[in-house]
Amino acid sequence: MAAPSPRSHLYRLLLILVVFGAGFLAVKQWATPDSWNYEHWYRGDAVVEAAAQPLVYGGNDSCKTCHKDVAKLWRKKPHRKVACETCHGPIVDHAKAGKKTAVAFIDKTRAQCLNCHLEGINRPRAFPQFSKQGEIGKLVPKHKELDAVTPCAKCHEAHDPRP
C-alpha cells in the first residue's frame, strides 16, 4: 500500500464533520414540532392549545339561562353595568354543564358594597361613594340613623339598588 496522503487526516476530519452535520440536520428536522409555522415562526398547535384553556367565568349569558327573573330586575338600573360574577364569583363555583353544584357566593356584609362604593380620592367624583362605618350619612340623611354594621342590603336590593 502506498504511503497515506499528507491530507488524509483532513479528509477524515471532513468526513466526521459531514456525518455530524447531516446527523444534526436530521435531528433538527425530527425535533421541530410538526405544526411549526415557518412564516411567522411559532408552533401552530400553540394557538389551538391556548384556546382550549378551560373557562372559569361564564359571563352574564351563562347566568341568565337559569336566573331569568334576576336578570330582568338587574337590567333596570343602575347596576346594569355590573356583571353577575363581579359580586357572585365565577360560575364554575356554582354550576357545571347547566347544573347547580353549589350555592353561589355572596358576601352580604357591608364590605361587599364598600369594595366599590367606599369613598376614596382616587375614585371618579360622579361615582356614588359612601364613607366608612360611623361616618355614614354624609350624603344621605337617612344613613345617619344607621349603626356601624347594618348591611346595605337590608334596605337596598343589590340588583336594583335605587333608594
Binding site: 391556548a50 384556546a51 384553556q53 378551560p54 373557562l55 372559569v56 367565568y57 347596576h79 356583571a83 363581579t86
Partner: peptide
C-alpha cells in the same frame, strides 16, 4: 384568548363594574 375564542369577553372586562 380562550374566552374570546369561545365568544366571551376577557375575564377582567367581564367583571369590571
Amino acid at each position: 384568548y380562550h374566552r374570546v375564542k369561545n365568544g366571551k369577553l376577557p375575564a377582567c372586562v367581564t367583571v369590571c363594574p
